[in-house]
């Protein structure tokens, strides 16, 4: 009896864990991906086939079932994006449900295939690995589902399999970071680059964009290290190591994200170094706060509200058979001490 009771407690704990794992921060996110069973009941082949991009997915004006599948709901930008979608889904006659990718391509792929089986009309995808989800995206396209890529686009040769891209261009964000350094140091400077998680789409594009933007300039990148997990602790360690190696040669730091820049700033503070020019991407609260208090010079901000609303707007147009742009780049804001008070303070 005692053993049974204990087994029940354990099962309840683990069930809670599994449920909580799949849940999103701050919303009624689906606790787990739709069941495999339901996917099997309605395989992709049986779903209505799309004749042309996005057209047959839904009747005009009907309530659309939209699946939002981000790489992780623990990512503050994704969680905030979902909050915006939830708030505005009624405006576009939609029901948006989130499925947590848990930074795992397998989980993301399973969520996509299961949503196909459950008859979703549209998907908003922000995968951790754009290449890993391609087969599932192709399956969704065949099933006539409107596929919208959110912030991370498919490789060029596979873009025919998605209907819409909405987001900022991370390559462009990297180029903007380069421009910020070139504008600040027209006569040249030595900088270091601290990257996001090695191998992720955002890290690769921001790094490539930064290097492309610096071509032909007098800015010299002394060193570059990426992190293992978008961790501020890692950016702090890396910056400390770079300070040992290069000392006050470092005139600027480009960090791939605002939260990571916090680690760089702390490392500089601990080393008693002042005046280092810091540029980071994201537009989160950390970035705005750091720009306000003068520890970060430029925050290249992606407007999550605009990206999320644009995604809903374009999906609605596509479903209604109206005109829509396939590629919707939302402009980046360059946040500095001059305009930080004028721009809306981010909620993430």
């Amino acid at each position: 009896m005692k053993k049974k009771l204990m087994a029940t407690v354990l099962a309840a704990s683990l069930a809670f864990g599994l449920a909580a794992c799949g849940s999103a921060a701050g919303g009624d996110t689906a606790s787990e991906a739709p069941s495999e069973e339901s996917a099997e009941e309605a395989p992709a082949e049986e779903a209505p086939a799309a004749e042309d991009t996005a057209e047959p997915a839904a009747e005009a004006g009907k309530t659309l079932k939209v699946a939002y599948i981000p790489n992780s709901m623990s990512n503050e930008m994704n969680a905030y994006g979902y909050k915006i979608m939830e708030e505005h889904q009624g405006d576009y006659n939609m029901e948006v449900t989130a499925f947590d990718g848990q930074y795992d391509s397998q989980t993301e792929t399973a969520a996509i295939t299961n949503c196909i089986g459950q008859g979703y009309d549209a998907m908003i995808l922000c995968p951790s690995d754009i290449n890993a989800v391609i087969p599932a995206v192709m399956q969704a396209k065949e099933a006539g589902i409107i596929v919208a890529m959110y912030s991370a686009d498919l490789p060029e040769e596979y873009r025919e399999y998605r209907d819409i891209f909405v987001g900022v261009d991370d390559t462009e964000a990297g180029k903007n970071a380069a421009k910020a350094f070139i504008d600040r140091f027209p006569d040249g400077a030595k900088v270091i680059e601290v990257g996001g998680t090695a191998g992720t789409d955002a890290q690769i594009r921001r790094h490539d964009g930064f290097n492309a933007g610096l071509e032909g300039s007098k800015i010299e990148v002394l060193d570059y290290q990426a992190t293992e997990s978008w961790s501020s602790n890692e950016t702090m360690d890396i910056t400390q190591d770079m300070i040992v190696k290069y000392g006050d040669e470092i005139q600027g730091i480009f960090c791939h994200w605002d939260g990571g820049a916090t680690g760089c700033i702390e490392a500089l503070k601990n080393a008693g170094i002042e005046g280092t020019y810091i540029v980071a991407i994201d537009g989160s609260r950390s970035g705005f706060d750091q720009v306000k208090d003068g520890t970060q010079n430029v925050c290249i901000s992606q407007n999550v509200v605009n990206i999320s609303l644009k995604a809903l707007e374009v999906i609605r147009s596509a479903a209604d058979g109206g005109d829509f742009e396939a590629e919707n780049y939302v402009p980046l804001d360059m946040v500095t001490s001059d305009n930080v008070e004028e721009l809306p303070y981010p909620e993430w």
Binding site: L14, F16, G17, A20, C21, S23, A25, S74, N75, D289
Partner: peptide, 26 residues
């Protein structure tokens, strides 16, 4: 068991904070 509990604690941290980073400066 400890692997499962790690998932429980991590999820509890997400629920507790609404997924938001906590700042000492705030």
């Amino acid at each position: 068991i400890t692997y499962g509990l790690s998932a429980v604690y991590s999820a509890a941290a997400l629920l507790y904070t609404d997924g938001a980073t906590q700042h000492m400066s705030h």
